[in-house]
Design a protein around this nucleic acid. Structure first.
Lengths: 329, 329
DNA sequence: GCGGTTTATGTTATCGATAACAACGCCTGT
DNA sequence: ACAGGCGTTGTTATCGATAACATAAACCGC
């Protein structure tokens, strides 16, 4: 920067200002300075800038898995909403593991992010403590924890599944199974399963058709395997709600291979409104929790917090949308 | 850090060393220092560390899209290979746009990453110049550019598709179509299309069944729409190679809705070995370019470069695997 | 027991940008 | 003509950790 300043015939401070979009430098001079910088091949050093200004221009984000269209959509909404402000996303995946989440959060906090976005509302004690002590604005998403760390933008997984159970029951189906959500690691999956059980009980129905699909991420293949087990052990099942569209599609393929008609003999539903659910034959009934919107609103909230427009913890509830399609008609 | 040092009764330098895993501090003292730090709620400041040591512990990565299982797999391989060394991934998506890529690269270089990984081998002039001038090790992936910027770990998209064309021709099919890859933005898609054309010509066949699917990312829906157009305009087509498994699956669903037998009347193939291709009914023939391995080997290469074991530009060619499944039997 | 080496710790200056403050020129209104 | 204000530029000290060097203590073989 000193070199650029010398060549441009100004002080380093003026060069510094020329690189900040808002600072007061005459337009002509800024242009000249940027031209000199480009010619000299000068590359601005954000590290030094961050240290002195005590701002990182980072927003840290943890997701359970990068390879998941739902979370990717949330990240997309976040990125789009934040990049206008020059905020960089620091992305990390926890692999549905709270210990890994804790490690990630600790790493991230060392970079002094402007805000930190966590997927889910359940964390290790130490992770929670670190976040609370950090002074960094925290947003928990994809969940509605009872005692949030800071801000929350999420939805009730249990309530969403209840809507689907209601739909099946209204169709006259009573022997309904739930596939997945059997492992505590995937707290959202577990919430959906608990929501299923509660909804069945509310209808006076037995919630005893629970099929395990193993630890997340639940693949299509695991959905197919679980459906095979279900058909073998409880062949009179009339409807199946799956923990995600991916497992639902896997379940569908298993039905197709066995000649089990969907929705003729078994009605199917997924969760997440993945593209596969809209395109598959039959199209899958599902629940859209608006992942992109979660990201977009989180971004907007973060900007509000950084600009001082939001000073109290926000609690924003997204209402998922029930999509009834061919698989459950 | 000074506070921690005072409480622990040592110099700040010793505290600093206690936080570096390799530095020479007696085990007892390190433990004591870390305990004090934890109690005081001290959080190490990576920014300051980076500035002074002139190391960022960042590896920057650009991908065309986060929401793509193939690229997510590559990122996964990278992350896994790098996190043991405490290297943080700085991830950005270009949306298949070279201008956006240039912007991202410029942003990333300001953070002085230890290395930068770029998906693809085609870039804007300025982007290339910035990378070359930066002195940062560059790895281009998912492609085999003729004049690489630095290191390359990729495969030939054209050659991979040729293998699939050969397979169809060996089966006696000659009226073969290619779906997608019509837009220059997606250079890998375009390479596959060109590879298709060249392979057809090599067999003395006309490569005139080219169906546009629009700009990337090509969705399942767009694959279905393109298949509808193909069936309408060239109903005597015997086989279709799609630019990805996602579009191939979309194409398959269109066939199912119209009662067109796959592979009975039309043979189908995709690209990428996405899970959908293995699970769908019929399972899709496809090409596995080992995205996870690309990431893993890129990580290994980066470590080799950083440790001085690799001093010349590497050129590693991955050989994709042809997977023949039910859709093309 | 003594030079020589290793191990563990401390001291000082520094990475590169910028906050905070000062100052200068220019305009404006009275 | 002059106080006051704004827009633009410069000066100085500083953000928090650590490289490089210095030093003290411990170890070691002969």
């Amino acid at each position: 920067m000193a070199d650029v300043a010398r060549v441009a015939g100004v002080s380093p401070m003026t060069v510094s200002r020329a690189f900040k979009l808002d600072a007061s430098v005459s337009a002509a001079r800024r242009e000249a300075i940027l031209a000199v910088a480009e010619e000299l091949g000068y590359v601005f050093d954000s590290t030094a800038s961050n240290l002195r200004s005590q701002k990182s221009d980072f927003v840290a984000v943890t997701v359970p898995s990068i390879n998941n269209a739902n979370f990717a959509d949330t990240v997309r909404g976040l990125t789009d909403g934040l990049k206008a402000r020059g905020l960089q996303i620091l992305l990390g995946s926890t692999d549905y593991d709270m210990a890994e989440e804790e490690r990630l959060v600790e790493q991230f906090l060392r970079r002094r992010p402007e805000a930190i976005v966590i997927t889910g509302g359940k964390h290790s004690d130490r992770c929670r403590r670190l976040l609370e002590a950090s002074g960094v604005p925290v947003v928990e998403t994809w969940d509605l924890p009872e005692a949030p760390i800071g801000h929350v933008i999420g939805f009730s997984n249990a309530a969403a599944v209840r809507g689907m159970v209601d739909h099946f029951v209204a169709k006259g189906l009573t022997r309904i199974a739930f596939l997945g959500g059997d492992v505590g690691q995937d707290t959202r999956g577990a919430d959906r399963r608990l929501g299923f059980i509660a909804a069945m009980h509310a209808h006076g129905l037995a919630a005893d058709r629970l099929i395990a699909a193993g630890p997340p991420p639940i693949s299509m293949r695991e959905g197919a395997d679980a459906m095979a087990r279900l058909l073998a052990t409880m062949p009179d099942t009339e409807a199946v709600i799956c923990v995600s569209d991916l497992s639902a599609f896997g379940a569908l393929t298993e039905c197709q291979r066995r000649g089990v008609a969907v929705p003729g003999r078994i009605s199917l539903a997924g969760f997440g409104d993945y593209e596969i659910g809209a395109v598959s034959v039959p199209a899958l009934s599902t629940i859209n929790p608006f992942p992109r919107q979660i990201g977009a609103r989180t971004a907007a909230l973060i900007l509000d917090v950084l600009d001082g427009r939001q000073t109290t913890p926000a609690r924003i509830e997204i209402v998922p949308n029930l999509l009834i399609r061919e698989s459950s008609v």
